[in-house]
Each structure stands twice: as C-alpha cells, then as structure tokens.
Amino acid sequence: MTEGTTTMADTTPGLRLAALTKSLGGRRIVDSLALDVHPGEMLALLGPSGCGKTTTLRMIAGFLSPDAGRVEIAGRDVTALGPERRPSAMVFQQYALWPHMTVFRNVAYPLRVRGVDRHEITRRVDEVLALVHLTHHRDSRPAQISGGEQQRVALARALVQQPDLLLLDEPLSNLDAKLRVQVREEIRTLQRSLGITTIIVTHDQDEALSISDRIAVMHDGRIEQVSTPSELYARPATEFVAQFVGSVNSYEGVLRDGAVRPGPGTIAIRPEHIEFRLEARDGALPAVVRSVVPRGHFHEVVLEREDVTLRAYMTGRIPDEGTRGWARVQQALRYRDGHLQEVVEGQA
C-alpha cells in the first residue's frame, strides 16, 4: 500500500493502522484500513465528506474504538487505551478551547491533569506560547482573541503535551482564505522543526498538496492511494483520485492519434495538458473556442472538437470566443476498471 521512501522501512512507524474497521449505524464507515506513517512525517488524510477520514482520526485519537484492527503509535499498541492514555494530541476543528479558562490555563490543562509540578508547568507553557507567538495573550480568554490566534492556542495545547503523534482535524477550515495560507505555513514550519509525526485531516486538496509530505486519499472507507503530493498529482492511481485531486476532463474510450475514440476504459486529461494554437500540427485537431472564463492567474477555456469538448487552462495570450484553431492533448491518463494503466504522453 505504501510506496516510495524505502529507507524508512526498517524503522518503527510513527503510526500504524492495521485492518482498521468501523461500522456506525449499520454502515461500514471505515473498511479494513491499513496505513503506515513514518516518524516525523506529515501525512494528510484527504477525502470528500463522508469518506471516513474523521472516523479514522477519532479511532486514532481514541474517541471511537474500532470494531476490528489495531492502532499503534510509535510501536506501541494503543487500541485498548482511552484518549487520555494515548501519546497523541489533537487540534480540534472548532479548536474546542475552554471558554472559562485563560489562554495560559487552556494550554496548561494537559500538564495540570498529569500532575506536573507548578514551576515546570509555567516554564513549559510559556515556552510553547512563545513558539506560537502568543505570549502577549497569555491571560486573555478565548473569546477575546481572533480565530487565527485561537487556532494557535489549540496548537499550543497539543504541543505542550510533547505528543508522539499530532492530530489536526480540519485545522484551517474556520479561517478566512488569506489567513489559511499563512497559518498553514506556520504549522508546517513548526511541525518540521519539532519533527512530530502528524496526521492532518482535510477535504481541501490545496491544503493537502501544500502542507504534507505524503497524502492518503480516502474514499468510501478505504485508502485509494498514498503518495507524495507531486506523485499523486502526476500519477493518480485511480479515477477517483484523478477527479478528486486537481481537475480532469474524463471520457469513456481510448486516445488514438490525439483523438478520443470509442474503446474500453476511460481517458482523463488534465486541463493544463491541453494546448491550443492557431496553426495545425501533429496530433492536433481542429477546435473552436466556445467560452472563456477568467480564473485569476489563468483562464478556463472551453474548446469544442469534433470528438469531444475539452476544458483547458490557459495562460499568456487568450483567444477570443469563436476563434478557430487546433487543440492537442499533451498528456492523458488511461484507466481500466478505475485503475491507472498508463500515462500517455503526446508528442512535445
């Protein structure tokens, strides 16, 4: 299931899930899921809502006990332990800060319930608050600080436990777009420097692609593919992954002489792999520009060819609607029964 980085194979995984299964309300939410996360790695659990990623996370944290299977953190079987006895710490989606405690007390709580000595608590909490740049809000209440700051308090509360495993449940979903990018980079930097094994659950592919070392794409309670972000994008192992990560034009049939023709299987073409020019050339077919939609730093152009209609992303000089020219597929993904057969490269 896992691939790449074989050098890690002999070390104990930071997290191992083995045949993890859970049914809720008669429906199988997580289906014999297996996953190894390398120590110090940041792995994104990516999938649409309802795919089982939250259930998986809750089983890792210990809020749900699996019907079958095992959870191992840093080589230790924790399946039977409650959340309070697992060496994992979680950042909740809505942060779950306790409104009746100050920032300091929120962060100190995990240490207090463990009976850590008072001076030690103060030292460690102040240290971690400095790490997330919140020292000035030490005595504020959660309601008095911004969403981004609350997020950092939640992170500090997790980090102060010095966990073997950090769990982030959609940590950025409550932040506005600009802040999201900033916080995401902060989290990444922090995670790298501390070297904590981290699972981040998200439904946002941008977030997953930009923050993680590897991504596990989940669908219907199973893992479809575990790969590095670039590998995942370049070689999506299943049709689902191709459609969920990034965007594709998808057609029944096969690619022959640059045209989509009837045949067994499916062809998926990424919009950025379609090249439109005014002049004819090898593998290019006549095409008409049907619509042009500005999408920020690129334009989405709908091209009509005699075989299929293509959605293409274009930069630079954008043709007007109604322009006639030639469109060529530079690269396509060929699937049989939902699985990747080959990456078809057009002529450069």
Binding site: A61, F63, P83, E84, A89, F92, A96, Y109, V113
Partner: peptide
C-alpha cells in the same frame, strides 16, 4: 456543553 470541549480535555489526558 459542546462535546468537543470534553473530548479535548480527554485528549489532553484527563480522566
């Protein structure tokens, strides 16, 4: 009382 507040405390190591 939001469940997540209690879960956060459990996760933090409280019985």
């Amino acid at each position: 009382v939001p469940r997540s507040l209690e879960e956060a405390a459990r996760d933090a190591g409280a019985s």
